[in-house]
Amino acid sequence: MSQIVIKDRIPERELMTSGHLACPGCGGALAMRLVLKAMGPQTVVVLPACCWSIIAGPFPQSSLRVPLYHTAFETGAAVASGVRAALDMRGETETKVMVWAGDGGTFDIGLQALSGAAERGEDFLYFCYDNEAYMNTGVQRSSATPWGAWTTTTPVEQPQSTAKKDMLAIMAAHRIAYAATASVGYPVDLIEKVQKAMAMRGTRFIHILAPCPPGWKFADEQSIELARLAVESRVFPLVEVEDGDRWTLTPAEAATDADAALAKYIGAQGRFRHLKPEQVEQIRRNVDERWQRMEKQASLSD
């Protein structure tokens, strides 16, 4: 893919400013920048507690050029429901509402409110930028943390012992209009998915893998590489689910060896450094099994 094509397909407008407080190499910061490029200025952002509560900047500053409402951890989808209702009552039906939540605020504490809103078909876009642990509080495990990973609450003697919760399947089970995964390593795909979701109504969910250098323990400049390896290794497949049952796997942009990519992905991160070869092999099998399930779902949708 040439740079010229990317330039044409990613809007030039910037609704996120410099001076934000993200760590160097933050996948979550890049994800916001890309999503807002697609969403445009007629957007209200609802932000439950997450790294972005800090990244957006303290009072009286803001690193976003759109209205932003900071709210409590578990309330993203509920507050957005209220914002949507009020905008509709004011006749501002064209203004978009988006929730920007981390994995803790989505997979764990915010799941109930999100499920309620999705069941009601609330008209907003919900973005989960997933850095696979409670990073803002200093790397504690969440239900998005992958099996085998180190965090401060899953020390190497007892690393994460459960599989990452399948958030996409949970959202698909609500039969919402659109649920998808995306990656900061594939910005054009990410932008296009946001644009596609924007053209729809009802609850739309986009799950973005956001590599975290301090939490995953890798070098700042490797974020994009790791985001791409996560997709190439099938650890984080790119997929769309429409109306709850039409699954489409986004084709990998380059033919790669998934096993080799997985070895590189795991090897590059300090949070997996304690794993023994047989544990890595266990991860490989789990990734493969899930991939095959997804392929089956996608083939059933053909």
């Binding site: 009020a86 905008l87 109930q112 409110a113 069941e119």
Partner: peptide, 27 residues
């Protein structure tokens, strides 16, 4: 003429009122 949001908990009831009121509506 009001939007009635039938939420899944009281926590979300107040959260939705917070969102609506912050957007200028009488909640």
């Amino acid at each position: 003429k009001a939007r009635f949001i039938k939420v899944e908990s009281e926590h979300s009831a107040m959260a939705a009122c917070v969102g609506a009121s912050a957007t200028g509506a009488r909640a």
